[in-house]
Structures are given as C-alpha cells and as structure tokens.
Computed example of a mutant assay.
Amino acid sequence: MTTVIEATALRKEFDVRVRVGRLRRQRRTVPAVDRIDLTVTRGEMVGYIGPNGAGKSTTLKMLTGVLTPTSGTVRVCGLDPVARRTRLAMRIGVVFGQRSQLWWDLPLRDSFELLRHIYRVPAARHAARLRRCRSLLDLDGFLDVPVRQLSLGQRMRGELTAALLHGPEVLFLDEPTIGLDVVSRQAVREFLAELGRAGDTTLLLTTHDLADIERLCRRLVVIDHGRVVHDGTIEALHARYGSRRLVVVDLDAPSVDPPVVPGAPLHRVESDGRRLVYALETATAAELVARLSGLTALRDLSIVEPDIEDVVTRLYRTPTQLTR
C-alpha cells in the first residue's frame, strides 16, 4: 500500500523561560514532540490522541509545514512539508477547530469560489465536489449567509467543505467537533465516515472527543509527553490496558452475600444490594449468567461494553512506556 505520511524520529523542541529566584529567568529547552515514528498509508483513518500538552497539534503543524522539526525526517505525499510547503498545500486539506480559512464578511458560497481560484480547480470538478458536500453536510440553507453570521456548527461544516474542494489526498483535522452541538457533531461524524468509506482520502484526526475516534477510526495512535505509547486498534488498546466488559445483574431481593463467580470478580454493588455489577475477565457472559441463575433469583441483566474513555484515562495514569 502507498505510504502518504512517514515520520522518523521526529522531534520538536521549544525554548521557554522559567523563573529562577525572584528576578532571574532561565532559558530551558522543552521537547514538545520526542522522536515520534509514524507511518500512515493511503485511505487510512487514524485517530491521533493524547492529553493536553502531549504534542498532538505540534505534530500536525510539522506534518503540514507550519513548524520546522528540530530533528528527524518527515514526508507527506512524498514531499518535505517545509521545503515544499506550497506544493504540499495543493495536496492536503487542513481543518483547525479554532482557526478559519473562510472569509469572515463574505457569504459562504463566495469563499468556496475564491478557494477554487486559489487552488486552480477546474469549474466542473469544483461544482461536483461542492454538490457532494452540499448534500452530505446540508449546506444549502446557509450558502448565501456571511461567515460571521454562521453558527459554530454551520461554520465547521463550511470549513470541512473548504478543505475538501480541491480534492486533497490527506485531510488533517485538529479538534473538528470542538464546541459543536449534538446535531452538528453527528452531521460532521457522518460526513467523515462517508469520506472514509470512499477510501480515496487519508484522514489524521486529533480530538478530545473519543466518540469521534470510536465512530471513525480503526487505528489509534496515543501520545503522552511527546512520545507514542500506543499504536494499534482500539481493540488492542482495550486488551493491553485491562479493559473489561461489565455485566449488570438486577436481583428480585437484596443480596447480603453476593455470589462469587470464578473469572468474573464483583465490580460493585448498587441499589442497596439489589444490583450487582461483575467484570468479565476469563469467564464469559453466558457462564456468569448460568452460575448466578443457579444461586439467586434474577430480575434483569445487561452487558456494558468497555468505555474507551476509561481505557485512555487509565493509560494516561500509567507510567509512559514506548511502543518501540
């Protein structure tokens, strides 16, 4: 498969001044990204996550040519992002949740037309892509509204369209759903999912909303303190950091002495002993239910799938261990 993003030992340092004593300040070098290796192939949808200050946005800025790496090598679409920044801009799309590429006082339609000329997109191709975005993102109701009058959700749908009208090979998204209401967030997710199913655009997504990752990305890269601590599937993340399914059992009567089930330790007791929550380790849900039904009267039960947010929180609390 064709590699579209390749970074090796990528590092970015910043000089900061810290207070030493009452009056003196001392310059200190701080690594924001610390020797990251990353390879992304054409058509992949990759979630790139980490806590605040982990180096996510710094990585994206190096991949798009905004920042120059301190050391290491990086290629995007076969180009050096800094040395070939103008050429690379014609082949990538970028959406930063806190920054706009639209003209504030112009109607959204006019911004799209200006971008067509900037990227030198043939009119027919531009019209076809715009029709697709209008349909999937429901743009028609505000195409003629000045950008400054759009809601945040409407503006973000416009930003996504603007990033895609020139047909980029790679789309970089930095917090694309930040601050959006439920309806707008769902519209953006469905659009990106449709984009991923088409398979002709590579997507690198950074976000604090892990529902975006679960909905869109099979591969998850987690960084902490500027280093990769996980690179693989979400399922592998669950397995690696001890994620477990929970079985919630409602009883007819309160349980004074909750049953012990091998391979499924009791996780917690709720509702004055009428609800027991077991964590599945080596036992299956069927084995647990069979065991419990022979020991006590069951009213209801449900299975709760592991929450990726809990898993990632547990990962952040674990001392950093490199995947390399």
Rank of each mutant, 00 (worst) to 15 (best):
D80R: 06
G53N: 03
E44Y: 04
R84I: 00
C77W: 15
T70Y: 02
A83V: 10
L63N: 01
M62G: 08
T68Y: 05
G65V: 09
P69H: 09
M62Y: 01
S57I: 05
M45E: 00
L60C: 04
T59R: 04
V76F: 11
R84D: 15
D80V: 08
D80L: 04
G43M: 11
P81K: 07
S57H: 04
C77S: 14
L38D: 00
G47Q: 03
M62Q: 03
L38G: 04
S71M: 13
K56A: 06
V66C: 01
K61M: 06
K61I: 04
R42H: 14
R42T: 15
T70E: 02
E44K: 08
G78A: 10
V74A: 00
L60F: 05
T70R: 06
L79A: 01
V46N: 03
T58S: 06
P81M: 09
S57M: 03
S71F: 15
P69V: 06
T64H: 11
M62P: 01
P69D: 08
I49V: 10
S71H: 12
L38S: 05
G47S: 13
L60I: 13
V40F: 10
V76H: 06
T58I: 11
R42Y: 14
S57T: 08
L38P: 09
G78C: 11
L38K: 05
K56Y: 12
S71Q: 15
R42M: 15
C77G: 06
V82N: 04
R84T: 00
R84P: 00
C77E: 15
G50F: 01
T58E: 02
